[in-house]
């Protein structure tokens, strides 16, 4: 099932990210590095082993490099640096031995785009119909949803500035990235004639 070996360099649909940049105009939209991702499916009692599987649905645990997002009652999306994929697969196999489960490598199916900055929620709300306010979608939230006409997984990481990860399927990446860039332009504040 698992074929997580990367001897050939990966060609990412949005290219490699440039050197770490800071948000300009309150927003930074940056394609993520080549990462490893797994879809884990598991039913039954969620005894915490090596993996934080017993957290509420629509939350994420971990940091922006290694994370486990619970997308449904029996579904988790796991992300990590590329080089750790084999380790994770082995650890998961050991942890879930004897349990009916499915761990599928979807590293190449998913594309990550990081959306950071004060305007991040406004930009995402150009196409995402969810309430992204701090009460409804605080840091540590994660869910599958929509961005315009594409399905995405939206993850909000903790951080000094609002910081979101958008995950979409590979062939939707151009659309999603273009949509976010367009939204970033449209979200810039316009001169407001002061009320008198």
């Amino acid at each position: 099932m698992l074929e997580v070996r990367y001897r050939t360099a990966r060609t990412l649909p949005l290219g490699r990210p440039v050197a770490p940049a800071l948000p300009r105009g309150g927003i930074l939209i940056q394609p993520a590095e080549a990462e490893a991702r797994f879809s884990l499916r598991l039913r039954g009692p969620l005894s915490p082993g090596g993996f934080p599987l017993d957290r509420p649905i629509n939350t994420v645990t971990g940091d922006d490099r290694r994370w486990v997002a619970r997308l449904g009652p029996d579904e988790w999306l796991i992300g990590m640096p590329e080089g750790e994929a084999d380790l994770l697969a082995e650890a998961a196999a050991a942890d879930l031995r004897g349990r009916a489960h499915s761990l599928v490598d979807i590293s190449h199916r998913n594309v990550g785009i990081d959306v950071t900055g004060a305007l991040a929620a406004d930009v995402l709300n150009a196409g995402c119909p969810l309430d992204l306010g701090d009460a409804a979608f605080p840091p540590g939230s994660a869910t599958r949803t929509l961005l315009g006409k594409a399905e995405i997984v939206l993850i909000r990481h903790a951080g000094a500035v609002p910081s979101y990860r958008v995950e979409c399927w590979r062939s939707f990446a151009t659309y999603v990235h273009g949509f976010l860039q367009e939204a970033a332009i449209a979200a810039q504040p316009v001169e407001r004639v002061p009320a008198r």
């Binding site: 006409k149 594409a150 062939s171 939707f172 151009t174 659309y175 273009g178």
Partner: peptide, 13 residues
């Protein structure tokens, strides 16, 4: 914004 390239996702391989 649903115009031109953003009218519909264009999926490519």
């Amino acid at each position: 914004p649903a115009r031109h390239a953003l009218f519909d996702p264009i999926r490519t391989t």
